[in-house]
Design a binder for these strands. Structure first.
Lengths: 207, 207
DNA sequence: TTGATAAATGACGCTACGTTCACAATGTGA
DNA sequence: TCACATTGTGAACGTAGCGTCATTTATCAA
């Protein structure tokens, strides 16, 4: 009985925590860090202020937890999607598809994600931005690996440093996503990954 | 005498205003909008708080003025640089050169510029982001025009919508710039515009 | 049922910051 | 030099919001 109860409690706690984070995500992504108060999060998630502070030391801590957990999930999804593929071209296609899908099916996350990246946000104390940055560039190294192996195996022309190619592809994805978010009717998101890849590919692939 | 005095005063005012904005730029770009107080700007620019408020209705107004003036100068510089060129390829090179140079010689501006773009910042009330966004996409239309005329004149292959190509090129520039800002020793900025252009060009230019 | 432990609550203290305004200093023209 | 106008000043005010903690409520073993 006792051994069964503790996990139950623990589970309940996790559920509450997730609820708080979910509400926080909605608010932060809509209004931004500084336009959301702890009271607001408390009220909307139907907990008392004090309860919020039982779960998170302070506002920054909450935000940090939120962003990192989202990034974890995001990166895991991409990595998992890439696992199956062998062919480098197909890997790039998969990357584009997976990233687009993950972000587009998770709109509250998108703006937060794009805002928080690259040390551009200023929202929090030093250390946070640096950590996210490092994470992002680590992820870019993985992507660069695909380009590199493509170049090594002569499937790609050597039109640039793999890392720069990775950063370029990724930033193009981001900006197309924002374009679509801002003006979906006029500039729809290119559904076909090749539409995006062609910008690189028509010069990249050995013909 | 009277007619000469008024301009002198006026000029003095402008000088003060610029000083305030300059200090504000330094602070905002280093710490972000919410981490900078009006008192801080006042102190560092050696004016009294009250004086700041003689020049700007409120903090938001000051920030808005700052960002818009910087954008004006930036866009003017680019447009001017492009004026001379006729050839589409050379125009793209010039765009890359001009933008890189303008941003790299103006580091405090860079982070602000990149953060404020694309409605990602949440710093201010609605209307501001929208206006900047519109501005940016208008500017992208100009860049798209270069791609379009290149495609029309058959110098470029038709590998994508001109507007998407413009957004892609521009975002790649931004991300390379950030990369360089974050890790200048490891990932130096590609000095040769062709190094960047090649990512697009090797597939873009009719061979 | 009861006593004890853990969890949840929200009124309140406190600080930081945007903004105001009564006053001081400076400049102007006679 | 004097009255007047313009410009500059910073103490004080109001408020928003973070985080605390004394108190209440729920949980659970005996």
């Amino acid at each position: 009985m006792k051994t069964a109860k503790l996990p139950r409690r623990e589970r309940e706690k996790q559920r509450q925590r997730q609820e708080m984070l979910e509400v926080a995500l909605g608010l932060f992504s809509k209004k931004g860090y500084h336009q959301v108060s702890m009271h607001e999060i408390a009220e909307k998630s139907e907990f008392a202020i004090g309860t919020l502070y039982k779960f998170f030391q302070n506002k920054e801590e909450l935000y940090r937890a939120l962003v990192f957990e989202l990034c974890d999930r995001f990166e895991d999804a991409i990595v998992k999607a890439l696992e199956g593929e062998d062919d480098v071209v197909e890997k790039l296609r998969t990357y584009i598809r997976a990233k687009s899908e993950k972000l587009r099916s998770n709109l509250p996350f998108v703006r937060l994600f794009l805002a928080e990246r690259r040390g551009v946000s200023f929202n929090l104390r030093a250390g946070f931005d640096e950590e996210l940055l490092k994470r992002h560039y680590n992820f870019m190294e993985r992507l660069a690996g695909i380009f590199e192996s493509g170049i090594n195996s002569k499937r790609f022309k050597n039109i640039g440093e793999p890392f720069y190619l990775a950063v370029a592809l990724d930033s193009v994805l981001d900006s197309f996503l924002l374009l679509w978010l801002d003006t979906p009717e006029r500039y729809p998101y290119p559904e076909d990954p090749d539409a995006i890849l062609n910008i690189f590919f028509q010069g990249l692939v050995e013909s």
